[in-house]
Computed example of a mutant assay.
Amino acid sequence: MANVFEFVAEARSAAGSSAAKVVRRQGKVPAVIYGGSEAPEMLTLDHNELLKHLAHEAVYSHVLDINVAGRAEKAVLKHIQRHPSKPVILHVDFMRVTKGHALKVRVPFHFVNEEVSVGVKKGGIVMHSMSDVEVSCIPSKLPEFIEIDMANIDLGSALHLSDLVLPEGVEIPELQLGHEHDQSVVQIIMPRAAESSDDAEEATEE
């Protein structure tokens, strides 16, 4: 993983919704870091700097450096609370990373060769059912994304979670819950307009 993301944070002592509102009025974002053998710690982050980091897709699937008063901790993003109608971050949760211990993180899909896939050449369109998936692995094996090659996907075919080619040491926990959790990730279907045209032609022939 080439990208390195450092979040400079400040420790805070006041808790509760009122204290969080004060933090936000100062142009900062209340946050918390938890997990590992240490107690949860409340933090504040600069809102503008946070937005710059979050503009990078890779930040959501990377081990991050959380710097608090010169003390660095490794963590991953676990939850972001956003304002429902404004480009404002309300709260951030970080989870500490322990070397050698497996962690669960959502990793985005990167779909390649969609335009040249077998099904698209036959007039089909690509329909995505999922844009990311939760994986389990040790921190050093965490992938930035999972690539899905669409070149050989035919019209009417679909790729499921069990069809994905995962990096070594990476698993999808949901697949361990049973076959019914093997969700469809992407498929190539015939456009509705084309289906309606075919139906009309069949009716005319009859």
Results as ranks from 00 to 15, higher is better:
L161C: 08
L161H: 03
S162E: 00
S162A: 01
D163C: 07
D163Q: 07
D163R: 11
D163I: 04
D163W: 05
D163A: 10
L164S: 03
L164K: 10
L164H: 07
L164W: 02
L164T: 08
V165R: 15
V165K: 15
V165C: 14
V165Q: 15
L166I: 08
L166A: 07
L166T: 01
L166G: 04
L166F: 04
P167S: 06
P167Q: 04
P167R: 06
P167W: 11
E168I: 15
E168R: 11
E168A: 14
G169N: 06
G169W: 03
G169A: 04
G169I: 13
G169T: 13
G169K: 03
G169P: 03
G169Q: 06
V170W: 01
V170M: 05
V170Q: 02
V170Y: 03
V170L: 08
E171M: 09
E171T: 15
E171N: 10
E171H: 12
I172W: 00
I172A: 00
I172R: 00
I172L: 12
I172P: 01
P173Y: 01
P173T: 00
P173G: 00
E174M: 05
E174S: 09
L175Y: 06
Q176P: 00
Q176D: 08
Q176M: 11
Q176N: 12
Q176G: 07
L177Y: 12
L177T: 12
L177P: 01
L177E: 14
L177H: 13
L177S: 12
L177C: 03
G178H: 10
G178K: 09
G178Y: 10
G178M: 07
G178W: 14
G178R: 09
G178I: 12
G178Q: 13
H179M: 12
H179C: 07
E180R: 14
E180T: 14
E180C: 08
E180I: 13
H181T: 11
H181S: 10
H181C: 12
H181G: 03
D182K: 02
D182T: 07
D182A: 02
D182M: 05
Q183D: 15
S184C: 14
S184H: 06
V186C: 09
V186W: 05
V186T: 09
V186M: 08
Q187M: 13
Q187E: 14
I188G: 00
I188W: 09
I188V: 13
I188F: 08
I188Q: 00
I188C: 04
I189R: 05
I189E: 12
I189W: 05
I189H: 06
I189S: 09
M190T: 15
M190P: 02
M190A: 11
M190V: 14
M190W: 08
P191F: 03
P191W: 05
P191T: 04
P191V: 02
R192A: 09
R192T: 14
R192M: 07
R192D: 13
